[in-house]
Design a protein around this nucleic acid. Structure first.
Lengths: 294, 294
DNA sequence: ATAATAGTGTCTGTCAGACAATATCGT
DNA sequence: ACGATATTGTCTGACAGACACTATTAT
């Protein structure tokens, strides 16, 4: 029997013989929203916010889900993510990063669905959709995500962490709990995240959102990722607030300024005067900062 | 018109209406192999090694590729990775971590293929396959991966890094170059990796391998991932060698010992005497070390 | 004795956390 | 003056890099 050439092989290859899963992308779009403060002296409160869409059809009808959808055959995963983002937020050029691909068998009741989650960061001034008005199915949710308990089981070389995630805005409150278990039981490191309870959140998106926040918290410490959430000009206090709400802890001003000093460039502009206090200098992101580890 | 219930919806849902991509998993299996040293005094040389399979059929016939394959409809991505690993290496319980999902349109000439890459670490003593003998299509390749040049283009807010990857063993040498470009041109951080040239490596696997080594280098600095490459008992010099070959640089003994001190437990065992030098204590991994950031 | 590895001590600079002090604004 | 934020200085302890020194072994 004659061997096939590669061209012949490709010509006769028929992928439709095999059953295939569907592939989707899910978008985690974060931004920082301001909450005006009534006290004329005090600064605005910033909130870390996530975009969710209310599901119009089955399954999980009426629940909130990450924006996303099926990929087309003629676009890459990244392109699909960009397209979805454009469709949902009408924004073209923003920070986008692949997070993780979820592939559990039963994660979608319709059919087998593999989903790649993407993390996207937008500065509030780029936002055209002011999600939250009556007609819209898209809304921004404030995020409250925190570790609530730790369970150590030395016998089984296991430690579990319970995290609570609350997503809320003027008219909605949805929440859930996830358990992250790490174990050396089998002689090697193993990680496993499960949804303990989830109210109002479709699919396994609670898990996806939690992972996205984890990644954001992690990366803000050692990359310049936070600047994607800032306007072109910003005060150091604004920057610090962004770090604080993402890390969910207060930072000391002097230390913070030292730490991010190499990431910013001082300008001769000043912030608009708002209250009875010293006006602050505006800074820009320093694109040319030395990046470590390369 | 009456609205459907979720059950009715699911019953009538037919996913076969849509065209779907194929989904595969690709495995990066790393281990540390010893190279006996002829000098009776000197220690063995350790090599970071990667498992590759020679492709028997089209496409890329005869070239080397990562082990992997199509996922089944009744198994999760992780389960598919474990199954492939078992099939290729006959090892069940080892460290496994999802790396990244590759979704370019043309990455496989047969059809549209999305592939999730997994990183796996094995200690050499668990290996049953001694890949490398004549008949086998699986072989271990020594890794030499290094940054060869940096090009800064301040005008365009771009920096490119050229990396060279060489994979070799007794009878094979394959190699390639990749370019990692990071850019702030559009106002936000963007990363892009392209294959400059690739000799003997199938698909986009050169890129996948490079990313896997990057991740390994990164994670070894702040996790205990390296211990998956060690036997149960090891000397601190062995451990240091593993760090050195992964990081591709020499470390100072005293500093290294300080750094990993909390990750190991001293035993009262000693290494087998090998040459004309002081015998070394054996250590075990400390499962209960405090992990930071949680 | 020698050549190699095993293991320890310590100086230095950097950097993060804590805290104190001063500056500047609108009311 | 007051109450808020803006900005800078400095003490401290932890830690990483560099280097020097001692200990132990088979030949």
């Amino acid at each position: 029997m004659q061997e096939m050439s590669e061209q012949e092989f490709l010509k006769q290859y028929d992928s439709s013989k095999y059953e295939k899963p569907s592939v989707t992308v899910d978008m985690l779009v974060f931004t920082i929203l301001d909450e005006k403060n009534s006290n004329y002296r005090k600064l605005d409160n910033k909130k870390l916010s996530l975009l969710l869409i209310r599901r119009k059809g089955h399954p999980y009808k009426g629940m909130w889900a990450l924006p996303g959808g099926f990929i087309n055959m003629d676009e890459s995963l990244d392109e699909a993510a960009k397209r979805e983002l454009k469709e949902e937020t009408n924004i073209n050029d923003i920070y986008l990063e692949q997070l993780y691909t979820y592939g559990d068998v039963d994660r979608d009741p319709r059919t087998r669905v593999i989903s790649s989650a993407y993390l996207s960061l937008v500065s509030a001034n780029k936002l055209e959709i002011k999600a939250g008005d009556d007609a819209s199915d898209a809304m921004w949710f404030n995020i409250n995500y925190r570790l609530v308990s730790t369970i150590s089981d030395k016998e089984n070389k296991e430690t579990s962490y319970l995290y609570k995630l609350e997503l809320s805005n003027n008219r909605e409150l949805i929440e859930g709990t996830i358990k992250k278990k790490i174990s050396y039981k089998k002689g090697y490191y193993e990680e496993n995240t499960t949804i303990v309870d989830s109210k109002g959140i479709a699919f396994d998106h609670l898990k996806v959102i939690a992972y996205g926040i984890d990644r954001l918290r992690n990366k803000i410490e050692y990359t310049d990722i936070a600047f994607n959430l800032m306007n072109e000009y910003f005060t150091l206090s604004e920057l610090q607030q962004v770090y604080e709400i993402i890390l969910n802890k207060e930072l000391l001003k002097a230390n913070f300024r030292r730490k991010i000093n190499h990431l910013v460039i001082e300008t001769n502009k000043y912030s608009e005067k708002k209250g009875g206090y010293r006006p602050s200098k505006l800074f820009k992101f320093n694109y040319e900062h030395e990046r470590k580890g390369e």
